[in-house]
Every structure is written in structure tokens, then in C-alpha cells.
Amino acid sequence: MNDMSVSRDVDTGEIKMRARGVEVFYGDTHAIKSVDVDIEDKTVTAFIGPSGCGKSTFLRCLNRMNDTIDVARVKGEITLDGEDIYDPKVDPVQLRAKVGMVFQKPNPFPKSIYDNVAYGPRIHGLSTSKGELDEIVEKSLRRAALWDEAKDRLQEPGTGLSGGQQQRLCIARAVATNPEVLLMDEPCSALDPIATAQVEELIDELRTRYSVVIVTHSMQQAARVSQKTAFFHLGELVEYGETGKIFTNPDDSRTESYITGRIG
């Protein structure tokens, strides 16, 4: 793992999102305990930890997806560009346009590939003409490295693509709304190794424009794609720092136990 950190270019950007004292309750369960984290712009941040540690839950706080779950309650402060996203004046709809999300299982809508990508721009009114929309769709598909495979079948259903293509379609769909932050919840867990490699490559590309936060259960993946890593355990943020450091010289003994495979 040491050799991996050598080639890593760690250009720390400005802080895009900041979380302070975030607590999440599911009914009576205390799922997240006082998490502080800074997410930097144009950086891939990985959340790792054993399953059930709260990393996905925390991710869903960042674009208020937890609002759609009745029993979930969020405390603490999360800001995007210095604005509190849990401020009562904030409309989660507007927030999610800025903080896009890609899910564990590829979930293309049962519509054509074109309509899948055009969905976000349409609801947010990002285009004024058909030509503009076409452009956005093409741009997004190119960014998701799907254009070459999909350009001849834009009107075919998105559900007809292979698993890896579906996930890249979902990424294209998220990119099309012009987000500033892209959240990815174990985006490769349902994919085969080749598709995983393609998506990981894509994530690295995306870093040039967006701040990417990725939840993964695979430490290798975190090491491969991220610049910053946060280790979660039992709802707590145990350690957060440069990926190279976390994997080679963690401060906390729990982190070390996890990356060496003793807990998890």
C-alpha cells in the first residue's frame, strides 16, 4: 500500500462542506454520534468502515436524503459553501440539485437512456430548448464515459443496459443536474471487477470538476480512488485524514485493526 500513496497528488482545495456535531437518530437508535468532518472541493473523500457503522447514513445527511425517512432525525450543523443546509429556509429540492447522489444498486428509471439523463435538467429547468437539452445529455454521457456505448441507442430503455453501464448512466444522470458535490453510496458493490474499474476511473475524472464523496466497504477501492478517508465505527467518526496516512500510519488503534482486517 505504500507505493500507492507515492503517486497520489494531494492538492487540498477549499472546504466545500463542513459538518459539526452531527447526530442522527432512527427512532430510538442513535445511529451517528457527533461527527465533525470537512469535505474539500475537487477531492475524492472516502468513507470506510464495517457495515452498519453509519457511513451511508452520514452520507445521506449531506443532501438531506434522510428527510424521506419518517423516523430519522438529524441534529448538528452541516454547511455547504458556508450555508447551513438544515436551515428551515433551505428547500431540500434545491439542495439536492447541488449535491447529487449515486446509489448502491444501479437504479435507472424505466425510461429511455436519453430521458434518464434529461430527467434532472428537465425538472430543474436547466435548458430552454431541445438543442440545449441534447447538448447537456451528450456532455453528461461523455463525462460518465458512456457516450460511445450509448450514442446509437439513446431512445432504448435504460434498464436494457448492462450493470456497469447502468451505474454509469446513473452517474451521468447525477452529473446532468450540474451538481457541486457528488455523493456515491457504494457505487460499485453491485458491479463486476471490469465495470468497477471503469467506474473508479470515472470517479477520478469527476474529481476535476466536483467534490466527490464515496462510501465503500472495500478498503482497496478507498485507497485507489480517494485523497481523503474517513473511518467510521459504531456511528462514530474514528479518524479522518489523508488517505495515504490512514492506510499506512493510522493514529487510532481501531483504524489499524480495521485496515489490517481484525475487525469488520
Binding site: 443532501n63 436524503m65 424521506t68 431540500p92 429540492v93 434545491q94 439542495l95 439536492r96 440539485a97 447541488k98 447529487g100 447522489m101 449515486v102 446509489f103 444498486k105 437504479n107 435507472p108 428509471f109 424505466p110 430527467y119 434532472g120 425538472i123 430543474h124 446513473c170 444522470r173 447525477a174 443536474t177 455523493l183
Partner: peptide, 18 residues
């Protein structure tokens, strides 16, 4: 209709009615 489709739509910033 699977929940994942709803999540996908909300994740893009769609309102419930959309």
C-alpha cells in the same frame, strides 16, 4: 415500484410530486 427508483429521483432533487 422499488424504493431505489424513488431514491434515485429524490437524489436528483425532484420533489415528491415530480
Amino acid at each position: 415500484v422499488p424504493q431505489s427508483l424513488r431514491d434515485g429521483s429524490y437524489g436528483l432533487g425532484a420533489t415528491q410530486s415530480e
